[in-house]
Computed example of a mutant assay.
Amino acid sequence: MTVQQLRYSKEEFARRGNEVYESQVRPQVEQGNHGKIVAIDIETGAFELAKDTIIASDRLLERYPDAQIWCVRVGHKGVHRFGVGHLQ
């Protein structure tokens, strides 16, 4: 198994990921995919949509083995949720 090497700082990675999602990917996936995960190669703009991060990332890595992957949950601010849920 090959270990992926990150080529960008965390800040640059996040900036690029968000930029690609907002400008290229979001318009294509937003309708009808709320809650699904998009894995995006921040260098090529290629992406995969799936029910979880593992499936989406694996599919993307099959096509682009050296992908620099940024994940987004469609319609949410974060990919994962921590804590007890909604408090009233």
Results as ranks from 00 to 15, higher is better:
residue 4 Q to D: 10
residue 34 H to S: 05
residue 64 Y to L: 11
residue 44 T to N: 06
residue 12 E to H: 09
residue 71 C to E: 14
residue 48 E to Q: 11
residue 4 Q to C: 11
residue 6 L to D: 15
residue 8 Y to V: 07
residue 54 I to S: 06
residue 38 V to L: 08
residue 59 R to H: 02
residue 4 Q to H: 03
residue 35 G to W: 13
residue 18 N to P: 03
residue 41 D to W: 02
residue 18 N to V: 09
residue 59 R to D: 03
residue 49 L to V: 15
residue 59 R to G: 11
residue 24 Q to P: 02
residue 75 G to N: 01
residue 8 Y to G: 13
residue 61 L to F: 04
residue 53 T to Y: 10
residue 57 S to G: 08
residue 44 T to V: 01
residue 14 A to V: 13
residue 15 R to Y: 11
residue 49 L to N: 00
residue 19 E to N: 12
residue 55 I to L: 03
residue 41 D to K: 09
residue 74 V to C: 05
residue 54 I to W: 02
residue 9 S to Y: 11
residue 49 L to Y: 04
residue 36 K to R: 15
residue 66 D to G: 11
residue 68 Q to R: 04
residue 66 D to F: 00
residue 59 R to I: 01
residue 69 I to V: 15
residue 12 E to S: 13
residue 75 G to C: 05
residue 18 N to Q: 13
residue 26 R to K: 12
residue 53 T to K: 05
residue 36 K to G: 01
residue 34 H to G: 02
residue 47 F to K: 00
residue 49 L to S: 02
residue 21 Y to Q: 13
residue 30 E to C: 03
residue 14 A to I: 08
residue 63 R to K: 13
residue 63 R to Q: 11
residue 28 Q to D: 06
residue 88 Q to S: 08
residue 57 S to Q: 03
residue 14 A to P: 03
residue 31 Q to K: 07
residue 70 W to S: 05
residue 29 V to L: 14
residue 72 V to I: 08
residue 58 D to K: 11
residue 29 V to P: 06
residue 54 I to G: 02
residue 43 E to G: 01
residue 15 R to T: 13
residue 25 V to Q: 10
residue 28 Q to T: 07
residue 79 V to S: 06
residue 48 E to D: 14
residue 45 G to K: 04
residue 7 R to D: 14
residue 62 E to H: 09
residue 38 V to P: 03
residue 84 V to W: 01
residue 8 Y to W: 15
residue 67 A to S: 15
residue 39 A to V: 06
residue 25 V to E: 15
residue 68 Q to G: 08
residue 16 R to P: 09
residue 75 G to S: 09
residue 72 V to G: 00
residue 23 S to E: 15
residue 68 Q to V: 07
residue 53 T to Q: 06
residue 48 E to T: 07
residue 58 D to R: 14
residue 15 R to S: 12
residue 54 I to F: 00
residue 40 I to N: 03
residue 41 D to N: 14
residue 48 E to N: 02
residue 20 V to Q: 12
residue 20 V to T: 15
residue 63 R to V: 06
residue 12 E to R: 13
residue 43 E to N: 15
residue 65 P to N: 08
residue 67 A to T: 09
residue 46 A to R: 10
residue 72 V to C: 06
residue 54 I to N: 10
residue 49 L to G: 01
residue 77 K to S: 07
residue 17 G to N: 12
residue 63 R to M: 04
residue 3 V to W: 10
residue 20 V to K: 06
residue 62 E to P: 01
residue 16 R to E: 08
residue 37 I to C: 05
residue 35 G to R: 04
residue 77 K to Q: 12
residue 84 V to N: 12
residue 27 P to N: 11
